[in-house]
C-alpha cells in the first residue's frame, strides 16, 4: 500500500564520533516526502545528504528526532522492524556493490529471494525481464568482473527494483552511466512513481536528473537550506 507521506522527518539531529571528537552532521532537519515522487537531495560534500539518506533508509539508528518510514517510527525501532522495513525498500549504491561470485541474474535474484521462498521459475522470469528492460538481456550470466562499470550499475539498479519496493533510496545512481543509460534508469524510476506509486529519494550531482525531479532539497552544513519544485 502506498503511503501519502512515506518519509516524514521531524526535528532530526545526528552526530558522529564520541567525546570531544563528536561532530554534529544534521541539525533539526524536517522533511516530508510525498508518495510516488522523485525527490533529489543536493548539496556539497559533507552537507549531510548521505547521512540523511542512510537514516531514512534504516541503515543507521536515529539518535535524536523522528523519522516515520512507511508509517513506522524509526527512533528506537527494533532491529526486526528495521529489517522488515528494509525489505520494502530498494537501495542503489554509488559503488554498485554487486556480489562478485554471482552472475548478473543471480545478483538480481538476491533482491527477490529476501522476501522468502517462492516459485523460482517466476523469480527468474522477473529477474530476466528487468535485466532485459535495462539492456542487459545478453549479459545475464556474466560475472560482475566481466561487466563494464555502467553494466554493473544497471545490474544494481535491477536488483533494487526487481522486488517492487515502496521506496527507492539511491546514491549517485547515474554516476557510472552514460547519458543514455542514465536517462533510462531515471525514467524507469519516474515511471515507477507514476504507475506504482514508488517513491524515490536520490542523492545526485547529475544536472540531467534535476530536470526530471519533482522536488529538489538542498542541504548545506547539515541543514536544509532550500526546498523547491522545479
Amino acid at each position: 500500500m502506498t503511503e501519502d507521506v512515506p518519509v516524514k522527518v521531524n526535528g532530526l539531529n545526528h552526530w558522529f564520533g564520541k567525546g570531544e571528537a563528536r561532530k554534529q552532521a544534521l541539525f533539526d532537519v524536517n522533511l516530508k516526502v510525498a508518495g510516488g515522487s522523485l525527490t533529489v537531495l543536493v548539496g556539497p560534500s559533507g552537507s549531510g545528504k548521505t547521512t540523511l539518506l542512510t537514516l531514512a533508509g534504516c541503515l543507521r539508528d536515529v539518535q535524536h528526532g523522528s523519522i516515520r518510514l512507511l508509517g513506522q517510527e524509526l527512533n528506537g525501532a527494533h532491529s526486526d522492524l528495521q529489517r522488515a522495513l528494509r525489505r520494502r525498500l530498494g537501495f542503489i549504491f554509488q559503488a554498485h556493490n554487486l556480489h562478485g561470485s554471482l552472475t548478473a541474474l543471480q545478483n538480481v535474484l538476491m533482491g527477490l529471494q529476501v522476501h522468502g521462498r517462492s516459485d523460482p521459475v517466476l523469480q527468474a522470469k522477473a529477474a530476466r525481464h528487468i535485466l532485459t528492460l535495462l539492456g542487459l538481456g545478453d549479459r545475464m550470466d556474466y560475472l560482475p568482473d566481466n561487466l563494464s562499470g555502467g553494466q554493473k550499475q544497471r545490474v544494481a539498479v535491477a536488483r533494487a527494483l526487481v522486488g517492487n519496493p515502496d521506496i527507492v533510496f539511491a546514491d549517485e545512481p547515474t554516476a557510472a552511466l552514460d547519458r543514455e543509460s542514465g536517462a533510462t534508469v531515471v525514467q524507469m524510476l519516474k515511471r515507477l512513481g507514476q504507475v506504482r506509486g514508488t517513491t524515490t529519494v536520490m542523492v545526485t550531482h547529475d544536472n540531467r536528473i534535476l530536470e526530471l525531479a519533482d522536488r529538489i532539497v538542498t542541504l548545506e552544513d547539515g541543514r536544509i537550506v532550500n526546498d523547491t519544485a522545479p
Partner: peptide, 15 residues
C-alpha cells in the same frame, strides 16, 4: 573478503 557484499545483503533486508 565479502564484508561489503554481506553489508549489501544486510541493507537489502537479509537477517
Amino acid at each position: 573478503d565479502h564484508l561489503s557484499e554481506y553489508a549489501t545483503f544486510k541493507a537489502i533486508g537479509y537477517g
